[in-house]
């Protein structure tokens, strides 16, 4: 089945099986390997991308369903000159990643959150991350990074 869509602002076409998942199309056909697969039950969020501005787990959508859509992945998050986005920079500044595997999904989710809710509370950040699992950071520095990216510096943690 043929499809054409825009990915990170570029027009792309593809020819896939009906059962091909969007994440596999991105990774295998477009070689956009920044989007990861961490589970097979739509739980972990490592494959999170934006489709027409909406937050989508790309393992939960067939590639052909994205025909005609505008898809944004982690590869399009930084500026063309390589300058990190505010969220990406906050993740580095606050050590919001360790192994890096969940990170693309976390960054895409954070971008969606801050678009919907520019000044979230800590509780709102944690709630919004419910569909993204990180095994390394204990979420502490991810939440801090997102709060910082929203312009809200966290009060200093005791003795940290």
């Amino acid at each position: 089945m043929k499809l054409s869509l825009r990915v990170n602002g570029r027009d792309v076409t593809g020819d896939v099986e009906g059962r091909t998942l969007l994440v596999d199309f991105l990774r295998n056909d477009l070689r956009l390997t920044g989007t990861h697969v961490g589970c097979d039950t739509s739980q972990c969020g490592a494959c999170t991308v934006h489709v027409d501005g909406k937050l989508v787990k790309s393992c939960t959508m067939f590639a052909v369903e994205a025909d005609g859509a505008e898809v944004a992945t982690i590869e399009g998050a930084a500026a063309p000159d390589g300058t990190l986005s505010v969220i990406q920079q906050a993740f580095q500044d606050h050590h919001g990643l360790q192994c890096g595997y969940c990170t693309p999904g976390m960054v895409m989710t954070a971008a969606s959150l801050l678009r919907e809710n520019p000044k979230p509370t800590e509780h709102e950040v944690r709630q919004y991350l419910e569909g993204n699992i990180c095994r390394c950071t204990g979420y502490h520095n991810i939440v801090k990074a997102i709060m910082a990216a929203s312009g809200q510096e966290m009060p200093a943690m005791a003795a940290e």
Binding site: E130, G138, Y139, H140, M157, E160
Partner: peptide, 22 residues
């Protein structure tokens, strides 16, 4: 045998931690 059945800690299960290594 899946994340539907094995409860991984998520962001809203956990607090900020206070850690010290002085």
């Amino acid at each position: 045998a899946s994340y539907m059945d094995y409860a991984m800690p998520r962001a809203d299960d956990l607090p900020f931690y206070s850690v010290d290594h002085s």
